[in-house]
């Protein structure tokens, strides 16, 4: 072993010498001016290189030592007496395993600690929630009337609930509806929406703009009822969807068309309705121009709208027939239901 060590040292020295020669040759290639600097640099690099080599040597030594120890250990199993180096090595090994084991234990302890902390946090949170709830209840009971009347509040309330994944309208029971009557409010609104839609169904074929619906619901509720925003209507209508596909909303130019008949409307129909929204009517060539459809597709959609009673045909228009949607006919919105019409609704 000692022989091996010696040879290693020798080898290393040889390497060092070789390196020196190399750096010197480098130095020689430098210019006259940079010579002093070059030498100083060379010296320092040699020093660092030497230390590097020494390090690697030590490492190699250690590896060799370990390898030898293992050989010896396998031999020493036969012989009872122990080499002091082997003992040292074994001790080291033991310490290492101990260290690794304790690391695992520490990890487990951390975990334990973590759960305890989490529990603490949950307890804290529920405490906070408790106080929040009681404060909210207090606030709610104090300002009940204002809250009930403010449509702004309802919008924000709904948004808040949406972000935490709660649907306050899912049930009539529960804290919110009992405290604030939010649930009841929407149920009531839902009934009023149905009333308005049914009353105007014969006129518009079951399509109504959200604006008109809003206007009529407000009128029906009277002056002293809570204010109702269009957002409230949209939410109430979404609730009505639970009762089947009778009620739906078609987005049209930033607002909605509310559909109260179970007509099957696909994307094509919706797009055509959107196109008709501005003027209240569409024609085949208009559809072809703005949507780049073939004549057949346009005709098909318009025929469907006629068939569902959503559109009326005007064949006296100049040029080509126009398809009018009473739901979008603006003069309609300002008119009330006449007694004759009312008679038709209730046979």
């Amino acid at each position: 072993m000692k022989v091996a060590l010696f040879s290693l040292v020798l080898l290393c020295l040889a390497g060092m010498l070789h390196a020196e020669v190399l750096s010197q040759s480098d130095e020689n290639s430098l210019t006259e001016n940079g010579q002093g600097l070059g030498r100083r640099y060379a010296e320092s690099t040699i020093a660092s290189d030497m230390s590097k080599i020494m390090d690697s040597m030590v490492q190699k030594n250690f590896v060799n030592f370990l390898l030898n120890q293992r050989e010896k250990k396998s031999m020493s199993n036969v012989t009872p007496e122990e080499d002091p180096e082997a003992r040292l090595y074994n001790n080291l090994l033991k310490k290492l395993t101990l260290c690794i084991r304790s690391k695992g234990q520490i990890h487990a302890k951390y975990k334990e600690r973590g759960t305890v902390l989490a529990e603490d946090q949950i307890v804290q949170m529920s405490k906070q929630l408790e106080t929040f709830k009681s404060n909210l209840e207090e606030f709610a009971s104090k300002h009940k009337q204002e809250i009930r009347k403010s449509s702004q509040f309802r919008v924000q309330f709904q948004e808040m609930c949406a972000t935490i994944g709660v649907d306050p309208l899912a049930s009539g029971k529960g804290f919110w509806s009992e405290m604030l009557g939010v649930g009841d409010f929407y149920y009531e609104l839902g009934v009023q929406i149905i009333e308005v839609c049914l009353a105007l169904k014969h006129r518009n074929g079951g399509l109504i703009t959200l604006d008109e619906l809003h206007h009529r619901v407000l009128k029906g509720r009277g002056k002293f009822a809570q204010d109702v925003s269009q957002d409230d209507l949209v939410r109430a209508i979404k609730k009505l969807k639970v009762m089947g596909n009778g009620f739906g909303m078609i987005p049209v130019g930033g607002s909605y068309l509310v559909q109260s008949v179970p007509a099957e409307l696909n994307m094509d129909h919706t797009v055509v309705l959107q196109l008709a929204e501005k003027k209240g009517y569409v024609s085949v060539s208009e559809i072809r121009e703005s949507l780049k459809w073939e004549r057949e597709r346009a005709c098909h959609v318009l025929d469907h709208l006629l068939k569902e009673g959503l559109a009326w045909l005007d064949s006296q228009a100049s040029g080509e027939p126009q398809y009018w949607l009473p739901a979008l006919f603006s003069e309609l919105t300002s008119r009330d239901v006449t007694p004759e019409e009312a008679n038709q609704i209730t046979p």
Partner: peptide, 24 residues
């Protein structure tokens, strides 16, 4: 009535249901 200003009111409607409303 509102229909009086609704141009298609003056065209006989092809859809039976709509036509009934129109005639009424």
């Amino acid at each position: 009535p509102w229909q009086y200003n609704f141009p298609p009111f003056f065209t006989l409607q092809p859809n039976v249901d709509t036509r009934q409303k129109q005639l009424a």
